[in-house]
Every structure is written in structure tokens, then in C-alpha cells.
Design a protein around this nucleic acid. Structure first.
Length: 590
RNA sequence: GAUCCCGUAGCUCAACUGGAUAGAGCACCCGCCUUCUAAGCGGGUGGUUGCAGGUUCAAGUCCUGCCGGGAUCGCCA
């Protein structure tokens, strides 16, 4: 099955051929949407770049390309502007043909990658004993959107939460529980089991104990040593500690799965740092025997610095001086695990930008060891979520905003908004709640994802869950409007027909539908979901313009009616796809 | 101290990696519901892109230097 090409691609081919016939590179013919919609639909800037190489007048080159472009049936008019811009205006036939291709295509004009890859995605950034809070939102929604996008493009994706379940925090927690409940069998080295099946701590206990333990460990040297000791014992398999630790993990997981379900996020694997543990001994032996790992200051390290480095590049710590494994070791172990079980061609780590150095070190170590090559390992950093003061977001009380509380707030605002507009009064309470939740999640995800992945952004609760303007609910509103239209059309026996282009609003809508494949490629190549958000918004906006300018069901001309209805359905299909890629569910009504 | 990122309208953010007149949303002002969902549509106000140089037909984007903010720099992850 071959997918038809988008208009920019077809024009690029034509312009590229013209450049080639002038003895120049085809890539100069790259055509894109015009910056000046008043002048043209598409533009090509290659003539100016070419003029530099050939030392010729750019306008002469542009004129030659324009003459070639004019022979295409897609092109209504083409001319040279300014220093050598090539402007193209499309013919109504070209637009109508493209619109019909999109309308007939299950993927609404979307292409696939030529060679699918096995891809591993590591996101979420959650830890045992910590509830999901607002700071976890980014990794989760960005990662989820990317896994949806990569799958849609044809790759085979394995997503892994890679839970933080294996570091010093575990030793800290064990000791903190021991202080509170010293008589539990987990701490009795002589106890032979079996250990209780019921967890001695709840999630609330854990999130209360964690900061307590962490604080003490930081300020008290002796306590810290005890925590390290406990961590080492846990990792080397002390049965009571292992049993208690498993309770920590399962108790935490219940909460995390609840949040996942609420947000509509899924993972293929629920592995953790601890799953890398079995691979560590063989890695250490392997790297020692090959002289790649060395013993330094009490720890087994791998040096990853290079001559060309402008900055200091510390070695990775494979096994620390307590004999325990830190996050360097576990990440390297995970790479080996994944190589053996999945053999990925690309591994994406969607983790806070602050860990850029860490990943560079681990990737270099992996490369040096010959596990997975550095160029197939990518850290997709993202900015932090800050409060209005520019520091990591805190609630007014100075605490951390838990994710489920945040979602509940958004649900409440959405519910209130529905009541206010007297919507949903004719449906059941359960459906109302479902609609409100979908609206809330749409608002949250769109707000987060529409920011460029790599930059920090300022979190403002009210703006995040606002439902007007460039927001998730605006997109839902447009999709729902078309669904409603489709229901009425069916009742009236209206069928979609051949798409003709007459109005400016129709042109604009078709051009936006056509821009989908470019947005997809761009979002995919750059791993940037905000490009999808942008496309979704522009599409919804173009549809809104069309909707007001071109009445459908009340149109008396049956040919126009059928054409406009077909265009509306094509828009709905593409909107459904893009929103699905962002991770947004569309209700039937709202 | 070193390295990296950021600075765009009152606020929150874009700008297809060097292209034409820097775009949206919010806020503010004006208009539009007895016809398909007004969570909407149309119009308006608002900019020396932190500052100063440089590179070239062309700079928010590239290079240099300042100013301001943030992050990171071997055993917490």
C-alpha cells in the first residue's frame, strides 16, 4: 500500500527536478507552506541559496523554476517575488484531488516510516514510596505521546516505567519503618518465615516516611551509614529486607496504576532498577576482565572522558564503595537486559533535562563496553515544571501537588463548567462524570504537551485547566461538533460526496489537512509532541472558520452539501488521529 | 570556577533550524446566537526579539563580548 504524498512533497519533487535540470541539487527545491498566505499557498527559497553557489542572479534561477512549476496541473499560478522567492498558488483541482485522497485514507493522509525499528521507551520517572505529583506529569504525558506517535508511524515500541526501586532510598525506608515498628519479623535476622502477606505500611505511610527518612539521612552521618548498610544488605538478598521491600513496591504500584488509568497511559513493562541487578555481576566481571572497569577510591568505575571533552566528564560508578549498585550501574544493567530481551535499534529515555550528564556518561560506557552503541541511545530531556517564582512548583501551602488531587481539581472545574452551560442534563450522571474527566484530561495534557519539550515552563493552575482558546477542550469541542453534525446528517439521509473547493475557508482547511504528514514527520524526527498539538489546534481553527463560513445541513445545493459534509468528516478523522497521538479521548458529546 | 540551557506583546507560549510584514492564546475594547454545539466566530489595541558589536542579498535564529535567570560538575537518584 503506497500512501499518496502531500502537496508540499509533490511540489518539492517538481521544483527539485527543475533545479536538477539547471545542474543543481534537487534538495534546493524544498517547498513549504508560505509565510505569506496573502501572496501564496507555498514557497520555495532554493533559488537564493543556488545563486550563491553559481554566482548567478537568483531571480533568473527562480524564473526558470517557476516556468517548470507552471506546467504542473497542481499549480494555478507561480511567480518570483523579492530577491528570489518562488511563490505557488494551488489550483482548485489540485486541492480537491488531495482532499479526496485524505478523505478516502484511513490514516487521513499520514505516511509511515520506510523501515520500522524496534524502539524502547523509558519514561514516567516514578519511584517507589513516592506518589505521583505534578513534577511527574511531563515525563508521563510526553513519553505516552511519543509511544503513540512511534507506533502510529510503524515502529515496534516497548515502553517501560523503569521504576526507581533500588537505591539508597530503599535502605532509608527500611530503617524508618524499623524505627516505627521495630518488632516486625522483617528485621529479625533469625526469623525463617514465611513473612506476612499483608503490608505493614500503606501508601500514605510511605509518602509520610520517605521525606522523614531522607531528611534524617541527609543531616545525620551515623544514620546515613546505617541506611547504606541496609541498602547493601537488601541488594545482596537479606530475606526480611527483600520481603519488606516487595511490600513497598506493590503498595506503590497500586497508586501508580490508578493514576495511569485515570490519564489513559499504558506501559508494556513494569520493570524497575532492581531488574538490572542480576546482570551486574556478569557486567562487572566482563568489564574487569577486559580492563574497561577499574578499581578506584574503593569503587568499581568505568572512565568515559574523552580528549575532545570541553567539560569535566566523571567516570561512572558501577559498584560503589559499599558494594551497592547506584543508578549508573542499574542503568547499564538495564541496557544489557534490554539488548538481550528486546535488541532495540533505538532507546529513548524521557527524563528530566537535569540528568543529561548522567545519560551521557552511561551511554558512553555502554558504547565503550560494546553493549548498545551511543548513537542508538537518546536522552530526551525535558524542562522542569516551575511555579511563578521560577522554582520547581509548590502549592500555596508550600507542599507538593499530588497528581490525583490535581486531576480531581480539573474534573471539578470541568463539571462546574458543564453545569453552567447546562450541558449533559439529558445524560446519566455517570456519563456526565466521564465527559468531565475527558475534558479535564484533555486540558491537562494539551497544556503540558504544547510547550516545547526541552524548555522549562511555568505552571499556573488556572491556565492549565482553562477551557477557552488554545486548549484541549477547544479541540474536543470541534471534534464533538462534527460528530453531532454527522448524527444529524445521518438522520436526514445526507451522504458525503466529491469535494469541490470554492471558498477561502475551504482552501485553508484543505491546506491544513494536507500539512498533517509534514507535522507528523517533524514531530517524529524531533521527538517533539508540541508539533502535534500545534497541528491539531491549527486544524481545529481552520475547521471553525470553515464551519461558520460554509453551512452544511442547511445548504440547499446538494452537491455543495455533500462536498462540505465530506470535508467535515475528513477533518474529524484527522482530528481523531492527532488527538489520539496526544493521548486525548473524545467524548460523543460535551 | 568550568560546561550547558534560557531571555520574544502586560501574562503564558510559538516561529518548520538563515527567509518576505515575528505569530497564537489569555487579558483589554468593538461586533455576532428565532438556522448544523457561543467551551464558538469576526475585528481592534499591544514588539527596537535582554544589551552592544560582527558575519551576508537576508538574523529572533549563526559568531564574539557583556547583563539577567536556571541547571549540572564521581559513589542520593
Amino acid at each position: 500500500m503506497t500512501t499518496s504524498r502531500d502537496l508540499a512533497g509533490l511540489l518539492s519533487d517538481a521544483a527539485g527536478a527543475a533545479f536538477v535540470s539547471l545542474g543543481l541539487e534537487a534538495s534546493l527545491g524544498a517547498v513549504r507552506r508560505s509565510d505569506r498566505p496573502d501572496l501564496a499557498d507555498f514557497q520555495c527559497n532554493g533559488a537564493m541559496a543556488a545563486a550563491k553557489k553559481l554566482a548567478k542572479n537568483p531571480r533568473d534561477i527562480a524564473t526558470a523554476v517557476v516556468d517548470a512549476l507552471k506546467t504542473s496541473p497542481l499549480v494555478a499560478s507561480s511567480d518570483v517575488a523579492g530577491p528570489g522567492f518562488i511563490n505557488v498558488k494551488l489550483s482548485a483541482e489540485g486541492l480537491s484531488k488531495r482532499a479526496q485522497e485524505i478523505a478516502a485514507d484511513d490514516r487521513a493522509g499520514a505516511q509511515r516510516v520506510e523501515t520500522p525499528r524496534r524502539v524502547v521507551m523509558d519514561f514516567g520517572g516514578w519511584n517507589v514510596a513516592k506518589e505521583m505529583h505534578i513534577g511527574h506529569l511531563r515525563s508521563t504525558v510526553i513519553g505516552d505521546s511519543l509511544q503513540r506517535l512511534f507506533r502510529f508511524m510503524g515502529d515496534s515500541v516497548t515502553s517501560d516505567v523503569h521504576l526507581g526501586d533500588w537505591g539508597l532510598q530503599m535502605g532509608q525506608l527500611i530503617n524508618e519503618v524499623k524505627l516505627e515498628q521495630p518488632n516486625l519479623p522483617y528485621f529479625d535476622a533469625a526469623f525463617t518465615g514465611p513473612y506476612p502477606e499483608q503490608s505493614p505500611v500503606t501508601m500514605d505511610d510511605l509518602s509520610r516516611l520517605y521525606p522523614l527518612a531522607s531528611g534524617k539521612s541527609k543531616s545525620d552521618e551515623d544514620r546515613r551509614n546505617e541506611d547504606r548498610q541496609a541498602t547493601q544488605e537488601l541488594q545482596s538478598g537479606r530475606p526480611g529486607y527483600r520481603a519488606l521491600w516487595r511490600h513497598f513496591c506493590s503498595v506503590t504500584r497500586v497508586g501508580l496504576e490508578r493514576e495511569c488509568k485515570s490519564l489513559g497511559v499504558t506501559f508494556d513493562l513494569w520493570k524497575g532498577e532492581s531488574d538490572a541487578e542480576p546482570f551486574i555481576p556478569q557486567i562487572v566481571d566482563d568489564l574487569k576482565s577486559r580492563g574497561i572497569s577499574e578499581f578506584d577510591a574503593g569503587a568499581w568505575i568505568v572512565r568515559v572522558a574523552r580528549e575532545s571533552d570541553k567539560k569535566e566528564m566523571p567516570p561512572i560508578i558501577l559498584v560503589n564503595r559499599d558494594g551497592a549498585i547506584g543508578y549508573h550501574g542499574s542503568d547499564l544493567g538495564t541496557i544489557v537486559d534490554r539488548k538481550q530481551s528486546i535488541d532495540p535499534q533505538l532507546s529513548l529515555y524521557i527524563v528530566d533535562q537535569r540528568q543529561a550528564l548522567h545519560f551521557e556518561q552511561v551511554f558512553r560506557a555502554s558504547d565503550r563496553a560494546g553493549y548498545l552503541p551511543e548513537k542508538e541511545l537518546e536522552h530526551l530531556g525535558f524542562g522542569t515544571v516551575n511555579g511563578p517564582d521560577g522554582k520547581p512548583f509548590k502549592t500555596r501551602e508550600g507542599g507538593i501537588l499530588k497528581l490525583h488531587e490535581f486531576i480531581a481539581q480539573a474534573d471539578a472545574v470541568a463539571t462546574a463548567r458543564m453545569k453552567e452551560a447546562e450541558l449533559g442534563s439529558d445524560v446519566s450522571e455517570a456519563e456526565q462524570a466521564d465527559i468531565a474527566h475527558k475534558v479535564a484530561v484533555a486540558a491537562i495534557k494539551f497544556s503540558d504537551l504544547s510547550n516545547v519539550r526541552t524548555t522549562n515552563y511555568i505552571f499556573d493552575l488556572d491556565r492549565f485547566i482553562s477551557f477557552e482558546g488554545k486548549t484541549g477542550p477547544y479541540l474536543l469541542f470541534n471534534a464533538v461538533r462534527i460528530k453531532s453534525l454527522a448524527r444529524r446528517a445521518e438522520a436526514e439521509g445526507v451522504k458525503p460526496g466529491a469535494i469541490g473547493i470554492e471558498l477561502d475557508a475551504e482552501r485553508a482547511l484543505v491546506l491544513q489537512l494536507d500539512a498533517f504528514s509534514d507535522a507528523l514527520r517533524s514531530a517524529y524526527d524531533k521527538r517533539m509532541p508540541h508539533i502535534l498539538c500545534d497541528h491539531a489546534y491549527l486544524l481545529a481553527q481552520a475547521f471553525s472558520g470553515f464551519y461558520t463560513a460554509a453551512p452544511i445541513l442547511v445548504e440547499s445545493d446538494p452537491v455543495k452539501k455533500a462536498s462540505r459534509f465530506a470535508l467535515a468528516l475528513a477533518t474529524l478523522k484527522q482530528l481523531e488521529i492527532v488527538l489520539a497521538l496526544i493521548g486525548i479521548d473524545i467524548p460523543e458529546r460535551m
